[in-house]
Design a protein around this nucleic acid. Structure first.
Lengths: 212, 212
DNA sequence: ATGTTAAGATGCAAGTTGTACCCTAAGGAG
DNA sequence: CTCCTTAGGGTACAACTTGCATCTTAACAT
């Protein structure tokens, strides 16, 4: 493992700034610790991440870490939460079911692509490493967007595009498939894939249900 | 970590049996190593598994392990392959498309349930942590079963159940959805979920394509 | 019998973990 | 201001793991 010397972090921790306390305390310190953990996770991956490595990157000692988190796993998960990978709650409203769903999938896809493939691997590794899974992480990163799809489908039904009783399995299918590709390839779905998911899978299913 | 002393394994390795070589060699040794790795994985989970622990359980030295596998991740993955958690190449042939696909999904599901949710999490964590992902692992664990589905669909087309040109996206959909649930919930899909995937999603799509 | 290969054992340096303990900066109360 | 408390930062230690080098010798082939 190659140690990365983080001179900026070290100098901040040791009170080189003027008119400022030399020691970080409380929330400021905790934020710095979690940021360091995230950076370390990105740099070396979960498998090679050590408490020592994070402490060094944060310009502190392991004792400080262990005062807050009993294990590297807990630390990493806390770091993921700290990064605030939350869902937006945005509901596309284009006037057409197809366009709404395409827009949603692109939104999901774009948001994830901000993370980057290496970070994505690190993130997923951390998520799966939690054997006592925290629902919050999964809710934020892996939720079905069922509520958003419900609104989109209700609007489509009100417009008369489809019937109003699409099952949850089908309602969540597009996002599920995008996420599936994300998990397999660790990169977001391509634009063509998104269109295929909507046109070849989702629309035939909801339109079939309408006709039946 | 509580060390489990495996006296049977140790005595076998040290030649206490009569009329038998004292040292295991070749395939016999490798099988014993992989079995020990599996037992250790079940006993302590991936996070706490060590090469030393596996070696001890196998009644051998770490050197022997390192001669075959460069890391604990590779060892564990090899152990899982050894357990037959690979695709078997089995192609269900029941005479009905629906039953074939159900049988395949159950096969995939049952096989994965042997691992156990805790170990599955650990395994997936390890897979994602390996930023230079080994293609073989993904092939074995995360493949689309496209070849199997191709055979099933060809048979169905020969029987006249469906048309012969189902897209790959749709052909792989059932297995993709089962895997998706596996990744999200870290437990295999329920029997009801499998039936829903086939009856509410897959069959309407392939039957729609036939009618069009 | 000899020669080769691989299993098993051991030791070592480097590194990590989890913890105990010490010093003292920082903050609050009086 | 002083005094007290808390928590940050540092260090040391024992135990453990890793990755590797090296040696011995059982097992097998010729």
């Amino acid at each position: 493992m190659v140690k990365i010397q983080s001179s900026e972090t070290a100098s901040n921790a040791r009170g080189k700034d003027e008119g400022r306390a030399s020691r970080r305390r409380g929330a400021e310190l905790e934020s710095a610790l979690l940021e360091a953990a995230w950076e370390e996770l990105k740099a070396v991956g979960y498998e090679s991440l050590t408490m020592e490595g994070v402490a060094e990157r944060a310009g502190t000692s392991r004792t400080v870490l262990y005062r807050r988190w009993p294990s590297r796993l807990e630390l990493v998960l806390a770091a993921l939460r700290h990064r605030g990978l939350v869902r937006t709650g945005t509901v596309p409203n284009t006037g057409s079911l197809r366009e709404d769903v395409l827009a949603l999938l692109r939104l999901v896809s774009d948001r994830v692509s901000e993370v980057g493939p290496q970070n994505l691997s690190a993130l997923l590794s951390g998520v799966f490493a939690d054997t006592g899974a925290t629902a919050a992480v999964e809710d934020h990163f892996m939720n079905h967007n069922a509520d958003v799809m419900e609104i989109i489908l209700k609007r489509a039904a009100d417009r008369g595009e489809i019937r109003g009783d699409i099952s949850t399995r089908i309602a969540t299918l597009p996002v599920d498939l995008v996420r599936h590709e994300l998990l397999l390839a660790r990169t977001p779905s391509s634009k063509l894939d998104i269109i295929e998911i909507v046109d070849a899978v989702f629309l035939p299913l909801v339109l079939t249900q309408k006709q039946a």
